[in-house]
């Protein structure tokens, strides 16, 4: 405790405590300490963000020539399954003709394919319900009532555009970023 309690006086007082100066010093020291802790903490935290080699693997090229019409393949991209399906003419027409009002998650087929390449549908193969991988790439797989994909976990069904038609999934199958490098090659990511 203070033996001689002298209240702080203003600057220039030779005997007492300059509270203003003390407050300033405390503030500056505290700020410097906070900056130091931040400067140490940030590199540690950022080291947990994706590293350069993970970022380098963030895109993958897919050769489309081995995929005949009516079939799809599954490609691994950023640790996730991606469906690349070669749609038949019938499947394309079915997808395009659906009225948007009938859809659980309305989206036109044209917004889900690249112009001039509507026979190719590229989707992230993760059911938007709880994350299982739906069946449907092989013609022998169950494809659900709309000819797209069928999720065996809880019965969600997707059409040939990957749009959800029967729940419990709430949303259409997600589209990864991709582009056509040529008619027979796409780059995902």
């Amino acid at each position: 405790m203070s033996a001689t309690a002298e209240a702080g006086h203003g600057p220039g007082d030779p005997h007492g405590v300059d509270e203003g100066k003390r407050d300033f010093l405390t503030l500056v020291a505290g700020t410097a300490g906070a900056i130091l802790v931040g400067a140490i903490a940030w590199p540690l935290v950022d080291s947990m963000n994706p590293s350069a080699d993970v970022l380098a693997l963030s895109s993958v090229e897919v050769d489309l020539t081995p995929v005949p019409a009516g079939q799809g393949i599954t490609v691994s991209w950023r640790g996730k399954p991606v469906f690349v399906r070669h749609r038949t003419g019938k499947e394309i027409t079915e997808a395009e003709d659906v009225k948007l009002a009938q859809l659980i998650d309305p989206q036109a087929d044209s917004a889900r394919v690249k112009p001039g390449h509507s026979q190719w549908i590229v989707l992230i193969g993760i059911c938007t319900h709880l994350g299982c991988i739906p069946l449907g790439n092989k013609p022998t797989d169950p494809r659900g009532d709309w000819g797209g994909w069928f999720c065996p976990c809880h019965g969600s069904q997707y059409d040939t555009s990957g749009r959800v038609r029967h729940g419990p999934a709430p949303a259409n199958l997600e589209l990864p970023p991709y582009a056509f490098e040529s008619d027979s090659k796409i780059k995902i990511g």
Binding site: P43, L44, D46, S47, M48, N49, S51, A52, D53, V54
Partner: peptide, 25 residues
């Protein structure tokens, strides 16, 4: 230790990966 692999076949290269690829490694 989040990025290091304590296996004789990978330890050295895991340290090099830390130096080159891990943010602030």
């Amino acid at each position: 230790a989040m990025n290091y692999t304590p296996d004789a076949s990978m330890a050295f290269s895991s340290v090099e990966r830390i130096m080159r690829d891990v943010n602030y490694g």
